[in-house]
Amino acid sequence: MAEVLVYVDHVDGAVRKPTLELLTLARRVGEPVAVALGNGAADTAATLAEHGAVKVLTHDASEYADYLVVPKVDALQAAYESVSPAAVLVPSSAEGKEIAARLALRIGSGIITDAVDLEAGDEGPVATQSVFAASFTTKSRVIKGTPVITVKPNSAAVEAAPAAGAVEALAVTFSDKATGTKVTARTARESTGRPELTEAAIVVSGGRGVNGAENFSIIEALADSLGAAVGASRAAVDAGWYPHTNQVGQTGKSVSPQLYIANGISGAIQHRAGMQTSKTIVAVNKDAEAPIFELVDYGVVGDLFDVVPQLTEEIKSRKG
């Protein structure tokens, strides 16, 4: 069976969930060969093997942390040349898309970004994309070169599928462009202890209706009662009530959880672009005419300051 390269997103060896989802999709089109770079790369092998990686190519060098994007492109290209895969799959993070695009250009291939599903086809993998703020679904193929496809989080289930996961050192020679953009300082984002927004099964969001940074504690309390991530509309972020890293929408994160709860959010097209593919959508809004209600499975027309705390209490008492 043909091999499929899977680019691994990990933090110091801890593999992030979207990569495991990618392995599920990769197994539909071939045998997954994982590529893990940077600090802790070799520590990813056990988890990757459990989820279907037949091989794990690893390489660590200071360049991956010290310079932007290009060292990773050089390494992925080296992996591509050593494996000659049938496809290359990369998680759809901002950086993942940039790496994938530059690789595609170098190897004379096309690129498809932000796939939400992937199937094997007679003429190569077929990617499903959700476009125009999720109002259309398209099916596309790369028709020249080796398909390079980036896949959004929550596009497939994580499945156990034990495989060899043999670790092999990848030989990488950095190009003269690798050191072009220097990372002169890095401030790690503080962990909130809540699930990662793009990976969470449940997302609870607040918008302008939350009316102040201090009131976001109501949204957080609901999120914590459900083990959910917290999101925010751009209006709430622009007002300085919640960090931009939590913004959901076209210029924030795109989420596709099992459950999305929108509180005090009107449902503008740019917000919908980031949450419309959620499985179940719930909204609390005091305006019965708010466009968000067009999307919901269940909506409460009411004041979030009454409804949300009552909901949180009820969930807590039901969970005991």
């Binding site: 932007l68 072009g180 953009t181 220097k182 002169t184 890095r186 401030t187 790690a188 984002r189």
Partner: peptide, 9 residues
Amino acid sequence: DAASEQLEA
């Protein structure tokens, strides 16, 4: 996603 970076080129 994970960090804020200062870049220079």
